[in-house]
Simulated assay, not measured.
Amino acid sequence: MIAYAPAALFLLLFGIGVLRDRRRFSNAVHFGLTCICLLFGLLFSLLRAAAAGGDRGVHALEWIAAGLLLIPFLGAFVLPALLLANGVKMIRKEGRRPANLLSFLAGLGIFGLIGLTIASAATRSRNLTIVTGTTVMIAAYVSFLFFCFIGYAFLYGWMRPRRNVDFVVVLGSGLIGGTKVPPLLASRLERGRQVYERQAARGKPPVLITSGGQGPDEQLPESHAMADYLTERGFPAEHVRREDKSRTTEENLLYSKAIMAEAKPGYRCVIVTNNFHAFRAALMARKTGVNGQVVGSPTAAYFWPSATIREFVAVFLNHKLVNFTICGLLALFGVAAVFIH
């Protein structure tokens, strides 16, 4: 059982963190460490059982080793291939904007790292091996954080607010042709309607706040188009308020917070965005002091990989001091190794 002690410790820290505030990135890190320690504990138990099984145990150990080698080997080629395919689809459907290239670039990066590893093994160059090892360590650190982010973001999406709320805040995402609500934003509005109706069924209908200002290529504020979308489909206009000054997600939350705090100082709210954006919006809600959790609306499957990578990059940069320091130290170790003979 001692092999599972680290997993139990991190699971305890994870549970405490979620109970204190589920909108913390440390929860994601504790979740990732729990999974990794659990995997190592399971592996250790399997190895001990195999070692105690005589010849059969040796054969079982060989199968375990083969499986452990095969899984990452296949994943190293399958994952980047899927990312490249998704990147091509994103470019065809959404255009060549930088944000739409992220899955394609991630696939190229993984294949590039595989090529660098093969080249260092083939040439047996000491300096190239050091460069490869340093790059792999940095990539492993970033990959661990990405695993933590995507795993906990999935869990966060399953956690539903259970208490009564006073407001439902739907975040804007841009308009088509300067006036029309696009499918991505429509899914948020429909999700917001569902949250409103579920709360109204308890006998206390909340106020729904559409949040979004007017962009340079838009003919009206996003919040107005969002409110019109809802009322044209039967939503009660008296339960809609419009926040029409914000230009970013942070401003969405800050300006909506001001409206809610003025109307009811002890408010509770639910924030609605797309599922790929929910966890980062929750982190930002905590940062801006908004008293509410975030729920996500469905997103087209092809859009999800690039959007999720974009969200992770944003979270990574929000903690750039810690992350760049760790990556810098790993790179420094690599540079130092070049000069040590």
Rank of each mutant, 00 (worst) to 15 (best):
Y156G: 05
V240F: 05
M137I: 12
G215A: 04
V195A: 12
D217Q: 11
F147Q: 07
L208W: 03
F144A: 00
F154A: 14
I209H: 01
H224I: 15
V169G: 00
P206Q: 10
L101T: 11
E190P: 03
G115Y: 09
G151M: 04
W158K: 14
D217N: 12
L185P: 07
K204E: 13
W158R: 15
D217A: 11
G215C: 05
W158S: 13
V169L: 13
M159D: 06
V207T: 14
V240L: 14
S143E: 08
S187Q: 11
Y141C: 04
M226G: 01
P206C: 04
G178V: 07
R124T: 12
D166C: 01
F154G: 13
D217S: 14
L101H: 08
V240H: 00
L145T: 03
A106Q: 08
R188C: 00
L128N: 05
E197R: 14
E222D: 10
G151V: 02
V170G: 00
G172F: 06
Y229L: 04
T179Y: 13
T129E: 13
G151C: 11
P221G: 02
A121Y: 14
G213C: 00
T134D: 03
G192R: 03
G172K: 02
N127F: 09
T210W: 00
L230W: 04
T134K: 01
F167H: 00
V169A: 04
G177V: 09
T117K: 10
R160L: 11
T134P: 02
A227E: 12
E197C: 02
L171K: 00
G133P: 12
V131S: 07
Y196W: 10
I176K: 12
S125C: 03
P183N: 08
D228R: 15
V169W: 01
